[in-house]
Design a protein around this nucleic acid. Sequence first.
DNA 1: CGACTCAGTTCAAAAGGTGAACTGACAATT
DNA 2: AATTGTCAGTTCACCTTTTGAACTGAGTCG
Lengths: 147, 147
Amino acid sequence: MKRNDFSQWDCSLARTVDIIGDWWTPLILRDAARGVTTFEDFHQSLGVSRNTLTQRLNRLVEHGMLEKTLYSDRPKRYRYVMTAQGVDFVPVLMAMAAWGDKWIADTAPPFRVRHKTCGAEATARVVCACCEAPLALSDLEPLDEAA
Amino acid sequence: MKRNDFSQWDCSLARTVDIIGDWWTPLILRDAARGVTTFEDFHQSLGVSRNTLTQRLNRLVEHGMLEKTLYSDRPKRYRYVMTAQGVDFVPVLMAMAAWGDKWIADTAPPFRVRHKTCGAEATARVVCACCEAPLALSDLEPLDEAA
DNA sequence: CGACTCAGTTCAAAAGGTGAACTGACAATT
DNA sequence: AATTGTCAGTTCACCTTTTGAACTGAGTCG
């Protein structure tokens, strides 16, 4: 069996993982996508320690996934809202969840969302942007580059 | 603006994150997809401490992402190979990388792979499995369930 | 006035990650 | 026969991160 050798397959993934590569961050983003915005709500929803939550939220703001806005001046109240960049990450989260549904048997209910466009329940699938066929490792080979 | 409320959007993501939710694991999987199989090669490629690498590999084996096989009895040599479950996760990694390419400007080169099916460079896109339209947060709404 | 809410900060203890050195089985070289 | 090298880890001492719980502080409500 031929071994793949994607020697150029670098960095984009690492940089992404650098932002979202821990237990909490993806879940914070899923909550944000669900409409959670305040510090207290994230804390309640996830059970993450407030200390860590502060760090994660700041990190996400720093990296442009969330925007922190003051929605009440007196008393000072903040809201964390997804940026376009954050919103664009949601399908990736859905792809992860779809994979989880498929492979990790569990009694816990899968997340269920309706796709307004087609009316059916949305399930994520990762396809080639060019030919729209589902991407699979077996259909990939290294792309040689000049220089 | 209407706030989404995906109260059912739970668990599948959390369970997935439970397996791959740290800095190293996704990169180990990317290496595995590239054809890296031995302990030493993972170690060299990633620069992760051997200690941590041992734990991560064991964890991935435990969770059915990799299979550990003895390919030489004398001396004892092991190989970590992706299972079907692991292979099926690769498109998710590609979706992450595609997002990284789009949003995280950096001098580092993106990973580049050819899609044999269409001959073009493969770029991941997440679509609805039902209608094949790209998934976007704005097209989603909670799915109400009986009971 | 006292109780409550939000959005954190502070602190000690526990857990997890790091690099560097070590083990042990074998193979190849001198 | 002795030394060096490779693979696949383990061990250890150190450092950073996470955790939980308590505390702060600004302001509101009754």
